[in-house]
Write a protein that binds this DNA or RNA. Sequence first.
DNA 1: TTGTGTTTTATTGCCTCC
DNA 2: GGAGGCAATAAAACACAA
Length: 279
Amino acid sequence: MVSFQDAKRKNPYDGFFMRSYDEEEIGDEEYDEYFQQPEKKRRLKADQIQFLEKSFETDNKLEPERKVQLAKELGLQPRQVAIWFQNRRARWKTKTLEKDYDVLQNSYNSLKADYDNLLAEKEKLKAEVLDLTDKLLLKEDKGSKTVVFDKQKVSAAFQQERVSNDISVGEVLSNSVMDCKQEDHNSVKSDAVDSDSPHYSDEVYSSFMEPVDRSYVFEPAQSDISQDEEDDMGNNLFLPSYHVFSKTEDGSYSDQPSNSSYFGFPVEDHTFGFWGTEL
DNA sequence: TTGTGTTTTATTGCCTCC
DNA sequence: GGAGGCAATAAAACACAA
């Protein structure tokens, strides 16, 4: 290791004192006078700082022996060396904190981007579920007479089953429909004047017209309805052609065009595969 | 030259450790 | 209780634009 004195010998006038009081610029008298002056801040020379920096790199803590030795080597007061190390540690800490902050900031930005993406995806899926729920209202259940469909129930079931089983939207909705059917069938029966024939109670009908936290009814395909009846019903429809979501014999659902729904909402031509999309 | 912001050196006060 | 570390801060030195 090269000592400071070795370095000094190579550059005898480079170091020790403030530039304005350097040996090149002042005489011996002024030089002595300067050092007898009461405390005045003296900036360290570049080579002194370089030497201290190297020492700091080796160990940023200063033992008493090392302090004295460095002070001797640099021609400084031990206290000056100690103060320099103290301030240097403070600068090092500040820089470290800044670096840590940058790392955390980048990490945060990355996580935030991920979170925003997930949020957007969640909203999209939510909208999709609502859309699909609404579409379900337009479907007819071929296998049964009347199906009650509860939006809240579907939503709850969706969350529950998504969390536990990671299943598709279609599956969740299918299950919900079947569950609701089983649970609510009796009440629907009581609501409906005659559940064996196509009929909508006032309550059920109005609940559809005002679909807020109310039950929805799926009517079976009205293949047995006469042409006259169909025409009459058609007069009440908003649009002439609709897709119907019908339950088939094997329990699956099919999506078929139909004119038989009472609920006159036009439906985009989504295939059933849309329902089974993995989320 | 001067005003202003930044950097560096030094002080102070508090805290911890032995 | 003394030594040493740290945070906060003062003050001198420096850099630089107007």
